[in-house]
Design a protein around this nucleic acid. Structure first.
Lengths: 117, 117
DNA sequence: CTTGACCTTGGAGCCTACTCCACCCTTTAG
DNA sequence: CTAAAGGGTGGAGTAGGCTCCAAGGTCAAG
């Protein structure tokens, strides 16, 4: 799969994908003519990248997730452990969101301002 | 309350607070000697800023939250409506996190890789 | 054999959110 | 009176994450 199609399927620009390759977030091998060629799973990976990013992970962190996955001894066991770690991080984020939500909920109906002027 | 104490209580540097003032995130009036003077509620507001930011809102968005709050007709009703809006945004974020979590959970135990190489 | 869509590589530029610096003023304590 | 602790300004610099050229190679269709 070449970069244009990947970009379309992942919902980002080619420039962004080239940038991601530069920072090690995606790995591209090349065709004889120099064009990048990506395996189809890259689409899934890029969707994961977008999601993780929206949820507050930096590209560096996400790249580390990717390396963890790649470098793990390839037992399903090791992979599961890694996924469980990420799930814990997510649960922490969700707890924070819950706290913010509670803070706002507590103010609904109170007329108590969050910001003075 | 002067900038140093505010910085200490809000857990950020004075420079950051001055920067926030520049972009309209906090409003400072001045003492006779030119020093900034902040009302105590600013601490609460800055904590809110930090939290909202960790959860993926940009400073511009957060500033808008602040303006919404300030500009609202000052009935408790209007404030509540605004808070409820923010809560909805949070609920959307939480749903996204939940989706990511589910994606990872589904892979636990499968040995199915997220990233190809 | 040219046109058009697709790809390549630098490298510059932009936005966000700080962070640091130099230089200067104010206030309080000894 | 002086030193230390706090404050003020303007402006430069940084890191992260793109985004946009310009100049040029590749390839299938007509």
């Amino acid at each position: 799969m070449r970069i244009g199609e990947l970009a379309a399927q992942a919902g980002m620009t080619k420039d962004t994908i080239r940038f991601y390759e530069k920072v090690g977030l995606v790995a591209g091998h090349r065709l004889a003519n120099g064009y990048r060629d990506f395996p189809p799973e890259t689409v899934v990976w890029l969707h994961y990248v977008r999601t993780a990013q929206k949820l507050g992970f930096s590209l560096a962190e996400i790249a580390r997730h990717g390396e963890d996955l790649r470098d793990a001894p390839d037992s399903a066991q090791a992979l599961s452990t890694l996924f469980e770690e990420k799930i814990q991080v997510i649960d922490e984020r969700m707890a924070e969101l819950g706290a913010l939500r509670a803070e706002l909920t507590a103010r609904v109906g109170t007329g108590c301002p969050l910001r003075a002027n």
